[in-house]
Amino acid sequence: MATEFADSAAATAPPPTLRQTISRNFFDTIVSALRTFGRAVDVANQSVTGACTDLVRGQFQWREALLQAWRLVTVTAIPAVLIAIPFGVIVSVQIGNLIHTLGADSLVGAAGGLGVIKQGAPMATGFLLGGAGAAAIAADLGARTIREEIDALNTMGINPIHRLVIPRMAAMLLVAPLLNILIIFVGVLAGYAVAITGQGVTPGSYWATFGSFTQVADIWMSLLKAVIFGFLVVVIACQRGLEAKGGPRGVADGVNAAVVLSVVAIVVVNLVLTQVTAMFLPVRLA
């Protein structure tokens, strides 16, 4: 009787207004995002503590980590070169034209080099790892999840974090700074070639100003950014892959979510790191 009364009351209740619907959807989205963020933090915490534990116990899977690192290199090395060349050229041309207007052509090397080192290289590294790297990791783990391999590992008492996530995290943290160095090298050389051939800058003045303004701390900060971006990418990709469901469509959705979330996270974190760097490591003449 009570059930019938409740059903009749629900049937006669007025439909929700547009404002109520939007508010409920917005609230549900915020709650879902916070829960997803919490699960990602949990994956990151388990991965870091598990890696330290495996190293202390001598159970770290070096072979699997190196294999995953090689796979990341094969999907990101050539695109890194192809991105670094036009990026170095664009930075050199745009900044060179501005500096030429101000009559300070000798500063092209400093401006172009700092642009590549402090912003271009870590951002390009993060986007490559967040694109090709995140897609590969999320697709691999997502396929394992829908094939119930993850459930099988749990049934056998094998922690998927130790078996699958930690080696990929180590591989990403190894490849990220190497990829960053490659992009810096190619980007600076591309900017140098454009400066001396198309903008009339002498090689001596280019490298002199580059060495005067570029500090070792700038390179270390660029490498640190790349490592942080790689850590964010691998945590997001692993979390989305391990939570894939719904068959092949679920794997595709997980891959798309991993790529999008990685790019957004990289942009937001880079903004914060740039502000902190500007406060504590301002550009100055060495």
Rank of each mutant, 00 (worst) to 15 (best):
V216C: 05
T125Y: 01
L153P: 06
A138E: 03
N159D: 15
V235G: 07
T202E: 15
F185K: 12
V194N: 01
K225S: 11
V234G: 07
A193L: 15
I117A: 06
P167N: 12
L223A: 11
A138Y: 00
P122W: 00
Q215E: 07
T209W: 04
P203Y: 09
P203F: 08
A176E: 00
G198A: 15
A121Q: 04
K118W: 15
L189N: 06
L153F: 12
A132E: 10
A111S: 04
M172K: 02
K118I: 05
L153I: 14
A217H: 13
T209S: 15
M221K: 07
L114N: 00
D218H: 00
M156W: 13
L129K: 07
A136P: 11
Q199P: 07
P203K: 13
G191S: 01
G113N: 00
G142P: 07
I219H: 11
T214P: 09
F229R: 08
A121F: 02
I146C: 02
G204E: 13
T209E: 05
T155Y: 08
V216F: 02
A170G: 02
G191F: 00
K118N: 03
I158N: 09
A143V: 14
L223W: 01
F127P: 06
G200H: 07
E149M: 09
I161L: 01
D140G: 04
T209P: 06
S212A: 13
H162E: 10
L232R: 09
G133V: 09
I137C: 10
I183T: 05
D105E: 01
A139G: 06
F229I: 10
A217E: 12
F231Y: 10
L232F: 11
S212R: 12
A152I: 15
A152Y: 12
L224Q: 06
G131N: 13
T197S: 15
H162N: 14
L107T: 01
G204Q: 11
G211M: 15
L141Y: 10
T209D: 05
G142N: 05
M156N: 14
T125I: 03
A195K: 01
V186I: 15
G130E: 11
G200N: 14
A110N: 00
G187D: 10
P160C: 03
V235M: 14
Q119N: 05
A135L: 08
A124C: 14
A134L: 08
F213M: 02
I183D: 02
P167G: 12
G211T: 14
L223G: 07
F231D: 09
E149R: 11
R147Y: 13
L128Y: 06
V165I: 07
I146L: 05
I117M: 04
L107Q: 03
I137L: 12
I161F: 01
T214V: 05
N180A: 12
L107G: 07
V116P: 00
L178P: 14
F213N: 01
L128C: 05
D218W: 06
G120C: 03
A170H: 14
T202M: 05
P122G: 07
A121H: 02
F231M: 15
A110R: 08
L189Q: 08
A193W: 03
G112K: 04
I181F: 14
G112I: 02
A208L: 13
A208E: 13
S212M: 08
F229N: 07
L129N: 02
V194E: 05
S106W: 06
G126H: 04
P167I: 09
G230S: 11
